[in-house]
């Protein structure tokens, strides 16, 4: 399994560059164009990242985060959910930058190779900013009544959060 994980990325890179070469695409120029898009995105999200990382760092330093986490601990312990990841699960559907700030904090405090670090990474990588997406998509066509969309989307998020915990346990431990 470890070998497969290690081989996926090199394989993808070979596939992409190989296919570009076969199709006679200017691979370097294409790469530069795409990387520039990435740069723009990074610059665009910086203000919200500053706002949210500041707020979350303050929230943690004040002791408020500890209160919430310890209040959530008993019910979460019943289902084997790491209480440290609970704030991430709550933030993820609402704000991508906020979730990013929490993951960064968890990776710094517990380490990327820890159980919590791995679980947080999988949660972050396998879910999306649900409310933002729904607002953009329904907003553009002026839909007022989204019916059952929020319910279904949040069920998907919830299952993703729970599955992250159990899949990481099965996969690594």
């Amino acid at each position: 399994m470890e070998f497969i994980s290690a081989a996926i990325i090199p394989l993808m890179l070979v596939l992409i560059i190989g296919m570009g070469a076969i199709k006679k695409v200017g691979v370097f120029d294409c790469f530069i164009g795409g990387a520039r898009d990435g740069l723009e995105t990074a610059v665009r999200i910086l203000p919200s990242l500053i706002a949210l990382l500041t707020a979350i760092t303050m929230f943690q330093a004040s002791g408020a985060l500890d209160f919430i986490v310890s209040a959530l601990a008993p019910p979460l312990a019943l289902i084997g959910f790491p209480k440290e990841a609970a704030p991430l699960a709550l933030m993820r559907p609402v704000s991508g930058s906020g979730a990013l700030a929490i993951v960064k904090d968890l990776l710094t405090r517990y380490g990327a190779d820890s159980w919590i670090g791995r679980t947080a990474s999988v949660m972050m990588g396998s879910t999306e900013t649900t409310f933002y997406t729904l607002a953009v998509y329904f907003g553009c066509v002026h839909i007022k009544d989204t019916r059952y969309t929020v319910k279904a989307a949040l069920l998907a998020d919830l299952s993703g959060m729970l599955a992250s915990v159990y899949v990481v346990k099965l996969f690594f431990y």
């Binding site: 994980s5 990327a112 670090g117 791995r118 999988v122 972050m124 879910t127 899949v167």
Partner: peptide, 22 residues
């Protein structure tokens, strides 16, 4: 974000499984 990890990419298969479930 996982640049400091021993294997930054090791989460990729779990991510695929969880995404599929979700």
């Amino acid at each position: 974000l996982r640049q400091g990890a021993r294997h930054p990419f090791e989460i990729i298969i779990p991510v695929w499984i969880v995404s599929a479930v979700s």
